[in-house]
């Protein structure tokens, strides 16, 4: 059923493109390409590469404890951006961290009409520089992608963000660093 649907889309694509292109060959001269395949969407996440170190998205996707986060990143259409050269620091709340939110919060955020809110929250978990755990100092402010700041506290080797989430593990990725945190960072209410 799924396959048939794909073919139908391909046929439709050919159909609609037919007047733009002067002839059939124009659309499928490249090798390694199935002339029937639909045009690929998205960005660098589609690059076939089993050799390089995993990027921040792939690191999160490989974790059983981050299925909520990965689903949210997809819904917020941030996969292509996070597959870029970065460098990124991603504070990655675990499934348990999301579960700590008031009941129904995640479901609500995952709705299409709330995409902007979801994007805002997720972008509050990302900064564009690769910050290793040892770079964090007590009282440091980190400017996040959504424009907000996260305040860092370091006490007895424990790194805490906004006083609500603790870094429990740090994983290097090809394009940055993923810090696993035990709470979801909520952007300051006044935006």
């Amino acid at each position: 059923m799924k396959k048939k649907f794909g073919l139908a889309i391909a046929a439709f694509a050919i159909f609609t493109l037919s007047c733009k292109n002067e002839n059939k060959e124009s659309n499928g001269t490249a090798s390694n390409s199935n002339t029937e395949s639909a045009v690929t969407t998205g960005g660098q996440e589609n690059v076939k590469d089993d050799v390089s170190q995993k990027d921040v998205v792939k690191v999160a996707a490989a974790s059983k404890d981050h299925t909520t986060l990965v689903a949210a990143i997809k819904q917020a259409e941030l996969i292509s951006s996070l597959s870029n050269a970065g460098p990124f620091t991603v504070f990655a709340p675990t499934n348990a961290a999301f579960d700590k939110l008031p009941a129904g919060t995640v479901d609500k955020l995952m709705k299409n009409e709330n995409k902007a809110d979801l994007q805002d929250i997720l972008q509050y978990h990302v900064t564009t520089s690769s910050l290793k755990a040892e770079y964090f100092t007590d009282g440091m402010n980190v400017g996040m992608v959504n424009g907000g700041n996260v305040t860092v506290s370091v006490k007895d080797g424990k790194i805490m963000l906004n006083g609500t989430a603790t870094i429990v593990a740090s994983i290097p990725a090809s394009n940055g660093t993923v810090h696993v945190i035990d709470g979801v960072l909520v952007p300051p209410a006044a935006k």
Partner: peptide, 10 residues
């Protein structure tokens, strides 16, 4: 047009 290689293709 015969030389056009679409994005995502090699």
């Amino acid at each position: 047009s015969k030389a056009y290689v679409a994005p995502g293709k090699y």
